[in-house]
Amino acid sequence: MNSDDIKLVNLAFRVPRVEAAGAYADAVPGWSKTALHDIDGVPFMEARLGDVRINFFENAVYDEAPESAPPGFLHASFAVADLEGFLSDVHWRAHLTWGPAEIRGGFGRRRIAFFEPFPGCRIELMEEIDD
């Protein structure tokens, strides 16, 4: 595992309503709505601001009490070639907060895990799984 094997995929934000975020992305120059997806029935919108992919969720997969969670930044997502390599590393494993789990949606199939290496800094690592 080295830094060349890690690539920023997206930034994720919680919003009160995915539909409202989509309307904003459609109306404001610089933004573009690219897709609506869902993970286990939970909808999210993928958008772009310039070259950066940004995902908008009403609830995150790791939310324990989503009705009380405020809108705002959720996490940065990074693609990795081998999630198991990170999970087996004692330093990463010590900061695991959710997962690993397999998810499926319009984006394909992924194995994901969330880490919080520093307070308030949540990172998702994801490994693409070929179907």
Rank of each mutant, 00 (worst) to 15 (best):
N2I: 09
N2Y: 12
N2F: 09
S3Y: 12
D4G: 10
D5G: 09
D5R: 14
L8N: 01
N10W: 06
L11K: 15
A12K: 03
F13A: 00
F13G: 01
F13C: 01
F13P: 02
R14S: 01
V15P: 02
R17H: 05
R17L: 02
V18E: 02
V18Y: 10
V18W: 06
E19Q: 13
E19Y: 10
A20E: 15
A21Y: 02
A21N: 07
A21F: 04
G22N: 03
A23N: 04
A23Y: 02
Y24M: 11
A25C: 10
A25R: 01
D26R: 08
D26W: 00
D26K: 06
A27Y: 06
A27T: 03
V28D: 02
V28Q: 07
G30S: 01
G30P: 04
S32M: 11
S32A: 15
A35E: 02
A35M: 02
H37C: 15
H37L: 14
D38I: 14
D38P: 10
I39R: 05
D40S: 10
D40N: 13
G41D: 05
G41C: 07
V42H: 12
F44A: 12
F44L: 15
M45D: 08
M45T: 01
M45F: 09
E46G: 12
L49H: 14
G50A: 00
D51M: 12
V52P: 01
V52L: 11
V52D: 02
V52W: 05
I54Q: 04
N55H: 13
F56K: 10
F56T: 12
F57E: 06
F57P: 01
N59P: 00
N59I: 10
A60Q: 14
A60E: 13
A60H: 15
Y62M: 14
Y62F: 12
A65V: 14
A65T: 12
P66N: 11
S68C: 14
S68F: 08
A69E: 12
A69V: 14
P71R: 05
L74Q: 11
S77R: 08
S77H: 06
V80G: 03
E84M: 06
L87W: 14
S88I: 08
S88H: 13
D89Y: 12
V90G: 09
V90I: 13
H91S: 11
A94P: 12
H95N: 14
L96E: 06
T97G: 13
W98A: 11
P100N: 00
P100Q: 07
E102V: 10
R104K: 15
G105D: 11
G105N: 08
G106Y: 00
G106R: 04
F107V: 03
F107T: 03
G108H: 08
G108S: 14
G108F: 13
R109A: 04
R110M: 14
R110E: 10
I112K: 00
I112T: 06
I112G: 02
I112R: 01
E116V: 00
P119Y: 05
C121I: 15
I123M: 06
I123W: 03
E124M: 07
M126K: 08
E127F: 00
I129C: 00
D131V: 08
